[in-house]
Amino acid sequence: MRSPRERPAGARLARLLTEVFAPGVLVTTLPLVAAARVSRSPAQFLLWGGTALLCCAIIPVGVIVHGVRRGRLTDRHVGDHRQRARPLSIGLASVAVGLLPLAAAVGWSRVRLRDHTGPQVLAGAALGAPLAAATFLALT
């Protein structure tokens, strides 16, 4: 096996891109960038960024790291497709739990501003969640 210095430039670039744009890196940085963009105060940033980071990155990535350390997963990229069901299920559940407070806050704001009624918000959530899930599943 070649040492890292002996690898061709294309292989080094491929490794760099794989590591920089790995899901674990993206789910850690993107929620923080989004929270920084919309937050009006450091407290808001900590609340939204921290919640997003916990639910979208720390828990899902932690499940994968734990699985690798226990020998249940072959590697942090979960290269063996047969091993993906459990980490993906836990990750999706974690993200869903993180989104619930946001969805509730948006629903409340729609009713409070009289843009929608309570039943309209509930109907939108009841129709929107399965539609979003179906779209996600169809695209993956």
Rank of each mutant, 00 (worst) to 15 (best):
T29H: 07
L30D: 03
L32H: 10
A34R: 07
A34H: 11
A35K: 05
A35F: 10
A35D: 09
R37I: 01
R37F: 13
V38G: 06
R40S: 04
S41H: 06
F45Q: 03
L46I: 09
G49D: 11
G49V: 09
G50I: 04
T51F: 00
A52P: 00
L53I: 03
L53Q: 05
L54A: 11
L54I: 12
C55N: 02
C55Y: 06
C56T: 06
A57W: 00
I59S: 10
G62Q: 07
V63F: 07
V63Y: 09
V65W: 14
R69V: 03
R69T: 08
R69Q: 11
R70G: 02
R72A: 13
L73M: 07
T74Q: 13
T74S: 12
D75K: 05
D75T: 11
V78W: 02
V78H: 02
G79W: 06
G79A: 11
D80K: 13
D80W: 09
H81C: 08
H81R: 14
R82F: 00
R84L: 02
A85M: 12
R86H: 00
L88P: 04
G91K: 07
L92I: 04
A93F: 13
A93V: 11
A93E: 04
A93I: 07
A93D: 04
A93Y: 12
S94D: 01
G98I: 12
L100M: 13
L102P: 00
L102A: 12
A103P: 10
A104I: 11
A105V: 03
W108I: 10
S109E: 13
V111G: 12
R112A: 15
R114K: 14
H116Q: 09
T117K: 06
G118W: 14
Q120T: 08
V121K: 03
L122S: 08
